[in-house]
Amino acid sequence: MSHRKTHSHIYQSRLHILTTLFVVVLPFLFLFFFSHVAHLESAHLLNDIRTSLVRLVIAYIIAVVFAWVSAVLFYKGKSALIALPIFDVLQSFPTFGLLPLATYAWGATDSTIIFFLVITIIWPLFFSIISSLKLVRRDWNEAVEIAGLKGFAYVRHFLFPVSLTGLITGSIIGLGEGWEALVGTEIIVGMHDGLGSFFITFSQNTSVTMFGIFGFLLLIFSINKLLWLPLLEWSHLKMEE
């Protein structure tokens, strides 16, 4: 009997861990350096980042729940025939078209920003999860049917693992669009805090704005490098046959 052993560790070597740790520290080093150069209070800048991040995280959680439940309900059968074309049309609708309506309903509040972020993030999540579910091998489905998995056991041992890769891929794409929508909406709505407010405040100061954009990219890069890419690699490994 032969076998091969593979490891599903996210970090492959010490160098990998050290590089990752360096990437964690980098945005903070940059932040303090930037605050010093721009004569800003670090606390103020941190507060703006935190406010925007909280909005994005809340919107992301809401979008994940809605996207996952909808994908599971509509990925196959007759409901898919009706629902998927409708969702396809809905996702093509320019989301900025709904911004005046949301602003009218909630004003310049967190709710407006979060609502707008949810309708931006939800589509990549939904369609990525759908594609993961549709790619499930027929004999896996049959094995699970024969095993008689139902309810929570079905979700835990089958539905969630098979949708995980789609969930992570959708998160990467969705949050990529989400960051853009976040700053854009905060600027358009005229929020008094958050990254959008920061860019508006320093719109006349090119060097501060450039530094801000660089810091912003660094933050997104760090989150991708630290969280999403290792998770994506891990989920692919989990599904490897």
Partner: peptide, 22 residues
Amino acid sequence: FQQFALLPWLTVEENIALGLVG
């Protein structure tokens, strides 16, 4: 099954126990 149909995210032990869980 011809192509085994083992769930790749589960261990050998968990795969064998699948029907018992159900």
